[in-house]
Write a protein that binds this DNA or RNA. Structure first.
Length: 775
RNA sequence: GGCCCAUUAGUCUAGUGGCAAAACGGCUCGUUUACACCGAGCAGUCCGCAGUUCGAUUCUGCGAUGGGCCACCA
């Protein structure tokens, strides 16, 4: 057997699939299975995590197609965010700020046109069966238009508002960010206990942020705190700044934490924001958008510099009681890694806080696979503290299509016919006071657009695909963003859930560690495909369960490659001697084999229906390897070579049908080799022009008795015993024996006796106590 | 601090209220009418404690360890 040229096979069928448009969505045929495909961020190349998760969704797409659905499986790329901006700047060696927004978007579109085909090729190469003619980019004209249009819709419904409430701010990128974009990071910092004077007495306050002293507005002590009770209602002198602030009773000050007294600053954290609101304090913001202090005598210093300087000053004035190094966890913006601030700037929000209960209800209407992923969605909603911040002070992105008239404080909306539009490029006169209105310069957060993928994808087919889609596949790290926001938008725009089902995939890890470029442990799917074939990679992806992280192990890929070789070899054997039989009078062994196969068809179908592709693969593969190849082929060999006409015909029929069923059941997992086998051997007798358009196997309608399983198992057990005996006696598997079977076996296996004789190499089978003798 | 998930052979994973399974690795062999990218066989395991049960690896509770999400972060 020559080594199999999988590359050649894969290339051949990729071309065929594309040329014959095997995966084209036919909007006129029914029923439709619609998939809200995740659009990957254009960033160079497909990585191993993509390879696994997109393979996993593809198993489902291919299965559904074989089940007779017209599968709506579009492909999109997400390219309106920071990663794209950075990518384009790098490729073109430019700075986005040197362009007008419109010009930069044009440059992006142009550049994307150049680089996207190569990017998408990886998805094609791994056999993802999207209809690539149904393609969208989240920055193209249509997406911008839809995103802006739907923003305006929300505005008209009163679900979007603009406010200058303190919002989560990143000082590096100088933009507001959403709660969902935060992550925890452990940092080391100095925990300093500072003397506040209350007349002649001292009130100690511990803080990690002394630079905010200039923004101190009040001090909280717990009303139950005996140490400080007598301070309540008095005023404390802020060190360095020497202004007086009130000491207030608030249960929010926990007695065990720090010194038990807490300073409220505008704004150190989220609690400060709430405290200011609750006690109607007048904020004094001393941090700028760039992360500098603007309060005398520290103006112009960056936060960290100011912190060092103020600690020095406190020390010199003997105002420090105690200082210790602590590790504490702080909120940082996931993209910059920098600690976030809370700054009052004018920003846009989508209301979500007052919709928690209905959003929870929507979540319950969706089937989550695995089930417990729904909990993550619910936990996220329970923990929400901010409305959805959607404006970003970035240059690149989809512009917010409004103008603000400052003289009469009126918001002017773009007309639908103007979309997509960049308000900066168009002057508007206020329709109320006739003054010139100020264009909104901010852009929408990328999630504000990618939360509309169902609508954007549907617009590619004249909005034929209605909500809810059949399926949303995605990874678990973006439940709080992509899944959540999509559910929000579908509710607001269409009062519907976006999809009936969602399947949540896990990560690919390497030795238990999450893969990342920085750790240098990236394994490239392109290399794996080159070395082992796309089918082998997909096979490995099918071994990991939905929702579970799976550790990348090369041996799984090797197992996949072996499977490909094995099924090709088995196919070669089957067709080496086979004459096509449309039907046949079934020999008992063959009938039993088909009964065994029926069980696998049944269970694989059920598994796929509940998105359990890994079980379907495991069952099918084990049937193929153990039952079909190791046993049935060995049993039937003799009849194929030496049988009577009837015996041969039955064997041919059974071999053909069972191999076809196995190949079909593996087709969603290993589509290339399945197609190869189908085209080489089956197509001339079957109708479909591709195995991927062929019908998923039905159970064979053949005679069935209660004893079938028992008889089959007994025969396999016998064969096994004989093999074991030969192994132990160090004999060849072909060694001739005399087999003695008890009467009960003779009765049970009466119709199989000749096949058993052949497969065990028994010269004769006698009756008596079970015994294997070598001749 | 709250919630979720996991814990099964040397490794990585299936699975089940009634003899615990595959792959890889190890060991012992075999192999010329599909396959040495093969075949046969062997060895080896349910995190701990309590409970429910005739029976628990499986269900329940508690705990341990690992992972994740969230909150807190003066």
């Amino acid at each position: 057997m020559l080594p199999i040229d999988t590359k050649k096979i894969e290339k051949h069928w990729l071309d065929y699939w594309e040329k014959e448009r095997i995966y084209a969505f036919d909007k006129n045929s029914k029923p439709v299975f619609s998939i809200d495909t995740p659009p990957p961020t254009v960033s160079g190349e497909m990585h191993i995590g993509h390879a696994y998760s997109y393979s996993q969704q593809d198993f489902i797409a291919r299965y559904k197609r074989m089940q007779g659905f017209s599968v709506f499986y579009p492909f999109g790329t997400d390219d309106n965010g920071l990663p794209t901006e950075k990518l384009i700047q790098k490729i073109k060696n430019v700075k986005s700020k040197d362009f007008s927004r419109q010009e930069f978007i044009e440059l992006c579109l142009k550049t994307l046109k150049e680089i996207t085909p190569a990017f998408i090729q990886d998805w094609k190469n791994i056999g993802v069966s999207c209809d690539y003619n149904l393609y969208y980019s989240t920055i193209n004209d249509n997406s911008r238009k839809m995103s802006q249009k739907m923003f305006l819709e929300l505005y008209k419904q009163g679900l979007v508002y603009k406010t200058d409430f303190p919002t989560i701010w990143d000082t590096e990128f100088q933009t507001p960010v959403a709660q969902a974009e935060l992550e925890d990071r452990e940092k080391e910092s100095l925990f300093t206990t500072i003397k506040f004077h209350v007349q002649e007495k001292i009130l100690p306050i511990a803080t990690t942020r002394p630079e905010l002293l200039g923004a101190c507005l009040a001090i909280f002590v717990n009303p139950e705190d005996k140490r400080y009770k007598h301070f309540i209602g008095k005023k404390a002198t802020v060190p360095i700044f020497n202004n007086l602030v009130p000491i207030l009773a608030d249960a929010h000050a926990e007695m065990e934490k720090g010194t038990g007294a807490l300073m409220i600053c505008s704004y150190g954290d989220k609690q400060d924001v709430e405290a200011v609101k609750k006690h109607k304090l007048t904020p004094r913001v001393i941090i700028t958008k760039e992360g500098k202090i603007n309060a005398h005598p520290y103006e112009g210093l960056y936060i960290k510099e100011a912190r060092a300087k103020i600690l020095e000053d406190l020390q010199n004035q003997n105002l420090i009681i105690k200082q210790e190094k602590i590790k504490h966890v702080t909120n940082v913006y996931e993209k910059s890694g920098r600690e976030i601030e809370f700054l009052p700037t004018e920003q846009w929000f989508i209301k979500i806080l007052d919709k928690k209960s209905v959003l929870l209800k929507q979540g319950k209407k969706i089937n989550w696979y695995p089930k417990h992923m729904q909990k993550r969605y619910e936990n996220w909603i329970h923990g929400l503290e901010w409305d959805w911040s959607i404006s970003r002070e970035r240059h690149f992105g989809i512009p917010i299509p409004v103008w603000h008239c400052r003289s009469c404080n009126h918001i002017i909306l773009a007309k639908e016919s103007e979309l997509p539009i960049d308000p900066v490029q168009k002057e508007k006169i206020c329709d109320k006071c006739k003054m010139k209105a100020e264009p909104e310069t901010k852009v929408l957060d990328t999630w504000a657009t990618s939360s509309l993928t169902p609508q954007i994808a549907s617009s590619l087919v004249n909005n034929k695909i209605k909500l809810p889609y059949s399926l949303r596949p995605q990874a678990h790290d973006i439940i709080r963003t992509w899944a959540f926001y999509t559910i929000v938008r579908s509710l607001y725009h269409e009062k519907k859930i976006p999809w009936k089902d969602t399947i949540i995939s896990g990560f690919v890890t390497l030795e238990g560690q999450k893969m990342s470029k920085s750790k240098g442990n990236g394994i490239k799917p392109q290399t794996i495909m080159e070395e082992f074939s796309a089918d082998a990679l997909r096979y490995a992806a099918a071994s990991s369960k939905l929702g579970e992280d799976s550790d990348y192990q090369e041996k799984d890929i090797i197992t996949g490659k072996k499977f490909v070789t094995k099924i090709l070899n088995a196919t070669n054997f089957v067709f080496m001697n086979l004459k096509y039989q449309k039907q046949a009078k079934l020999h008992e062994t063959d009938r039993l084999l088909l009964q065994q196969l029926n069980q696998i068809i049944d269970s694989a179908t059920e598994s796929f229906n509940s998105y359990n592709y890994s079980k379907a693969k495991l069952d099918t593969e084990s049937f193929f390897w153990k039952t079909f190849a190791d046993n049935y082929l060995e049993i039937v060999k003799n009849r194929v070579y030496n049988g009577t006409k009837e015996e041969k015909e039955s064997a041919f029929y059974t071999l053909y049908q069972s191999l076809l069923a196995i190949t079909k059941m593996m087709a969603p997992i290993t589509p290339f080799i399945a197609e190869e086998i189908y085209q080489q051997h089956f197509k001339k007798h079957e109708k479909a022009k591709s195995i991927h358009l062929s019908k998923w196997p039905d159970e064979f309608k053949i005679k069935k008795t209660k004893e079938d399983g028992k008889v089959w198992n007994r025969m396999i057990e016998l064969i096994s015993s004989v093999r074991q005996a030969k192994s132990e006696a160090q004999k060849s598997m072909k060694a001739e024996i005399i087999l003695t079977l008890p009467k009960s076996d003779h009765k049970l296996l009466v119709k199989l006796i000749n096949d058993i004789k052949a497969v065990t190499g028994a010269k004769t089978i006698e009756e008596g106590e079970f015994k294997i003798e070598f001749t």
